[in-house]
Design a protein around this nucleic acid. Structure first.
Lengths: 198, 198
DNA sequence: ATGTTAAGTTAACAAGGTTAACCTTGGTAC
DNA sequence: GTACCAAGGTTAACCTTGTTAACTTAACAT
C-alpha cells in the first residue's frame, strides 16, 4: 500500500529506540523494527542510510538529552562552582544509569563495533568538559594552568564514567549499595576541585 | 582427512585470539577462524560448545594473565601497603591498555552481548578486590569498617576502570597526554588510601 | 576381517544486513 | 481523459552469521 506516509520515519525511530533500550544493539534488527512498525525492512533504507545511520540518529537523541541536562546546571548563575560541579556530576551519573543502553553505545563501545560517530558531535561533548574544567579551576582558586585543568576534568570524567560503566555492565558486587557508591563517586570526583593542599 | 589431531584445539585458540585482538568479537567468526586454522567451521564445535564457549576459553586466558600480574604485587611481603596499591593500580591499568580487546570483553561489555561469563570466575576477581581493600585499610590506618572498605576499593576500581575504558574506546581528547592521565589516575586512586583528614 | 570410535567434512537452516528490481498510487501536463 | 512521472513502498535475492544433523574416513582392538 504505497503513499501512506504517516510519518513513517518517526515510527521507525520510536520502535528502534524501544528495541535498543530493551534488548540492545544487535537484537535491534532491521526486520524486527520493521515488523513492529508495520512495514518491510527495506523501507527503513528509505529513511536511513543503513542500520548505522539509524543508530546514529538515536545517538543524536541521547546526546541532546544529556546536553540539555548538563547545560541546565552549567549555565545556572546563582550557584557556586562547587554546586555546579556536584550538579553536573550527578546529572551525568543519573543519565548513564537511567539510559544504560544509550550510554553504552555513546561512550562504552569501541568505535570498531558501531561505525564511528561523527567526530564533530564529540566536539560538543568536549566543550562541556572544558566548562567543567573551568569550574574546577574556579573552585580550586589557584592559577589555572590549562593543561592541568584539562587533566583534572578528564580525571573527573574517567571516575564518573567508570562508575557508570561497571554498574551498567553489572560487574560490581551486588551486595554493595549502589546509591552509596554513586554518592561517594561524586565526592571522589569533587576532591579534584579541592584547593591544592599546602 | 581424519585423525591428524595436531593439537587442533591450540591452533583454534591461537587464531581466535589473534582475530579477537585484531578485529573484535563479532569479526572473529567461526568460519574465519577455521579458514586460518585450515579446517571447517564445524570442527570448532568438536572442541568448544559454541562461539561463546570458545570465547570463554579466551577469557580465562585473559583473567589468568591479569591475576598473575596482580598477585605478584599483592603477595609481595617486603613492601608497604602504599607500594602494593600503587603497584596493583598500575598493573591493572597496563593490562587494560595493552590488551584492549580482552579488557573490553572482560569488563566493558554488557553481559547481554556475550552470554554471561560464569559468576564463579568473577568471584576470583572480587577476591583480589578484597585484598586491595585490605591494603587500603592498612594504608589509612583507621578502623576498618568492612562496608566502608568495600566502598573504597570499589571507588578505586571504578576510577581505574574508567580511565582504561575511555582510553580504549578512544573517547578522550587526543591532545591530552595519555601517560600523564594514567599517572594521575593512579594518584587519584591512591588518594582513597590517604589517612582520613582530621 | 570386523567392529567401533575418534575426528573430520558436507549440506543445510534460520536470522541478519543490504541491494536491485519491481509495483502502485496520486498528482500534473497536455 | 489520457499519458506521464515520481514518491513511497514491496518482493526477491545475495551474502555472511551461528549452529545442527547426517555422513565419511582413518586408526585401532578384537
Amino acid at each position: 500500500m504505497p503513499r501512506p506516509a504517516t510519518n513513517l520515519r518517526e515510527s521507525i525511530l520510536d520502535q528502534a529506540r524501544r528495541l535498543l533500550l530493551a534488548e540492545g544493539y544487535t537484537r535491534m534488527s532491521m526486520r524486527r523494527i520493521a515488523s513492529r512498525v508495520g512495514c518491510t525492512a527495506t523501507s527503513l533504507y528509505l529513511y536511513f542510510k543503513n542500520k548505522n545511520g539509524l543508530f546514529h540518529a538515536l545517538m543524536d537523541e541521547g546526546m541532546d538529552k544529556l546536553f540539555v541536562g548538563l547545560d541546565h546546571v552549567l549555565e545556572s548563575t546563582d550557584t557556586t562552582p562547587q554546586e555546579r560541579l556536584r550538579g553536573v556530576f550527578r546529572t551525568y551519573l543519573d543519565f548513564g544509569l537511567e539510559n544504560p543502553e544509550f550510554y553504552e553505545v555513546m561512550f562504552l563501545l569501541h568505535p570498531r563495533h558501531t561505525r564511528r560517530y561523527p567526530p564533530e558531535k564529540y566536539r560538543a561533548a568536549r566543550n562541556r568538559l572544558e566548562r567543567v574544567g573551568a569550574d574546577i579551576a574556579l573552585a580550586r582558586g589557584d592559577d589555572p594552568d590549562p593543561a592541568e585543568v584539562q587533566v583534572l576534568a578528564a580525571l573527573a570524567w574517567t571516575s564518573l564514567h567508570g562508575t557508570i560503566s561497571l554498574l551498567v555492565a553489572q560487574r560490581v558486587d551486588a551486595r554493595l549499595d549502589q546509591e552509596t557508591l554513586v554518592d561517594r563517586a561524586v565526592e571522589h570526583a569533587m576532591a579534584l576541585a579541592l584547593p591544592p593542599q599546602s
